[in-house]
Design a binder for these strands. Structure first.
Lengths: 239, 239
DNA sequence: ATGATTTGTATATTGATCTAGACCATTATG
DNA sequence: CATAATGGTCTAGATCAATATACAAATCAT
């Protein structure tokens, strides 16, 4: 099975075999890979060689390793369409996965220049800042820091904490519908905060999305800067 | 262009680039590859690394190296259909290449057991043995030792030497048509003789074909053991 | 013939890959 | 809590890959 001296390293050949088994459906997302010992046995190589193969799969975002537990096949990337009507929970449910949102913290503050401009406020106008994390099937997909104008949306943190849903939080403040008015997409390298909140290694790619939501009257109600784990999400724009 | 530390050796990547250029038509058969020095420059690697890449292409039969001269793209393998009516020159001409045959030597002898059986003779019946080499565009394709019954085909060596054509030599002996009655295909590793006559390295693969031709009346007229350079020929049987 | 060009060979050095073995840290399980 | 299972880290040595030089041998052009 393994060809030595043909210009392809052993660890890469092993990685390609496992990758093919994932792509071919032999290894379903969420299932545990054979243990390092088992792979060592199967391929007839040293454990370190298997580990290097697994490391390359981790770097590609195909598997996730947990010390003491095992190596698991990552879920297929979530397809995240960005349109004027984007609802995280609907997107996740639409792909047969279980959405969840969690409030990380909140505070009241004066709007920064950037936020004031986005929400059509004056600098230092009061806003409530909300930090939240979002999950699909318990796996972190994104985290965000968002700003809502005060006093109109004073209730948002409490309702969001209780429901995990921005849509519900806005509804509690009398906004029954909203749409996305602006989206900017960038990319960055995960820092310590991204690493902790998305449960990824520092250095992995992150999609950074600045968005502005407006109510049916076109009044800005929410500015958000979201950090998506790029290994777990594929944005679709238009199409 | 070259990715180091990704599990694929540098020499293999270089070989794949050159192979793609050959397959893509950028390097026509017969043309000379850039010199080792030029390739060293182009890929930014050591000369030995280029040499290993070239060696892998030689091993695949894609190029041929001549010390002091250069490295040349091999011709595409000649497709050699084996049927009841097989004529070397017609096959070669049919592929827009220039056929040639050369007499290497001849002698009269008594038929060996194998030849006697093939030609329907008794052992030690007189035959003329002919050794010949066959070329397409000047490149050696095969060499063969053949046996013809005597006295019927005494003229064969002289005519073959003059024309380079077995068909013409047989015609001179009154055989206007012939067909292949038996073919056995085997493979071997080139020995010193193969190496010299086919201009290939010892150890390269060789197709060994034993065939018997018969005249229109079904009388055996020629036994042949041909050695084909496997890198330059693809046999097609049936189809 | 002569010299320049081009491939062939040899040796040595450095770094990457693979193997081997030992021990630690985390997780799962009874 | 104790134990086993599993991945994480470290050291050391063997082999392979790539570099760096030097020189030999064959070919080609003049």
């Amino acid at each position: 099975m393994l060809a030595r001296g043909r210009g392809v390293t052993v660890w890469r050949q092993i990685a390609e075999v496992i990758e093919a088994e994932i792509a071919g459906g032999g290894l379903v997302p969420g299932t545990r890979l054979p243990t390092e010992a088992a792979l060592t046995e199967r391929f007839g190589v040293n454990r370190h060689t298997v580990r290097q193969a697994v490391k390359s799969l981790v770097d590609k975002g195909l598997v996730r390793v947990t010390q003491g537990s095992g190596t698991y096949v990552e879920a297929k990337p979530l397809t995240y369409p960005i349109s004027t009507r984007t609802r995280f929970s609907e997107i996740v449910v639409g792909q047969a996965r279980d959405p969840a949102g969690r409030l990380l913290g909140h505070s009241e503050a004066g709007a920064s220049l950037e936020i004031a401009e986005a929400l059509d406020l004056s600098p230092e106008d009061p806003v409530v800042m909300v930090e939240s994390a979002h999950f699909a099937d318990g796996v972190p997909i994104s985290w965000a820091v968002t700003a809502f104008p005060l006093p109109r949306f004073a209730e948002v943190p409490a309702v969001y904490a209780a429901t995990g849903s921005i849509t519900a939080a806005l509804a509690a403040c009398g906004v029954s519908d909203y749409r996305r008015a602006s989206t900017k997409v960038g990319a960055a390298i995960a820092d310590a905060t991204d690493s902790a909140r998305l449960e990824i290694a520092e250095g992995r790619p992150v999609l950074v999305i600045d968005s502005i939501n407006v109510d049916p009257d076109g009044v800005p109600i929410q500015w958000a800067r979201s950090h998506f784990c790029a290994d777990r999400v594929r944005l679709t724009v238009g199409g």
